[in-house]
Design a protein around this nucleic acid. Structure first.
Lengths: 116, 116
DNA sequence: ATAACGTATCAGTGGATAATGATATGACGG
DNA sequence: CCGTCATATCATTATCCACTGATACGTTAT
């Protein structure tokens, strides 16, 4: 599947679901913590566990999700598995979100739809 | 801004929750449909209802969420309430997400963590 | 006033999902 | 081989969230 094809798909009716799924991949503090751990480069699962403070099965689950969503990539090395951001755009998207937050997101923590 | 600075920003502890909340605001197909309806300009609630195919209370609920999150702004005019995107960056973020999807998102619909 | 209209809120319900503990799989060293 | 380590999967649980229908609130027109 080429980028052009995917672009075409985005124009179709399922575009909303795809976008929603991408954003949902980024909508969890645990996954953001994992991505955060990967901004500085490749890391093994246990390094991510240490850096994020999350449980190991939990990290594995989220990594599986992030991998399926194409946000991270994976490289096996012996019994270690090293993850990295799949694309510079991932960090860029997070960075842009921060800029949007700085500009308009002052009240975002008062959004009552989400209680967490 | 350097990668180092981004790293530092990402280290702020409550930044993760804020970012997660912002992305969560964008992680629902209904809300994306609403934002999509607003890309071309200001619209009343019923126009959004017609454009998105969602129920009116549902739209109101999501609009409340988007408003609290600072993603849209609101203007009352008689008994109409007209909404618009709060910032060009909102559309920009969605656009960037589409570009990321085009580049790496081929498998995002196969992510099994989300079944919808 | 009162009816009609546009929008917002509320309560209930069904379904999704994040976290945890236990366990399985696979790789290395002794 | 066998024990240990790194990672992945499974089952459970408790929570959260989106949608719907009913209804309340505010505004305009008759």
């Amino acid at each position: 599947m080429t980028a052009r094809d995917i672009q075409d798909d985005l124009s179709a009716s399922n575009a909303l679901e795809l976008r929603a799924k991408l954003f949902r991949g980024l909508s969890d503090p645990s996954r953001l913590a994992i991505l955060n751990a990967l901004v500085s480069g490749e890391r093994s699962v246990q390094e991510i566990v240490a850096h994020s403070g999350l449980g190991q099965p939990n990290v594995s689950n989220h990594l599986r999700c992030l991998l399926d969503c194409g946000l991270v990539s994976r490289r096996t090395e012996g019994r270690f598995v090293r993850y990295r951001l799949a694309d510079r755009r991932v960090a860029s998207l997070i960075h842009d979100a921060d800029r949007l937050l700085a500009a308009t997101g002052a009240g975002i923590d008062t959004c009552e739809r989400y209680t967490e």
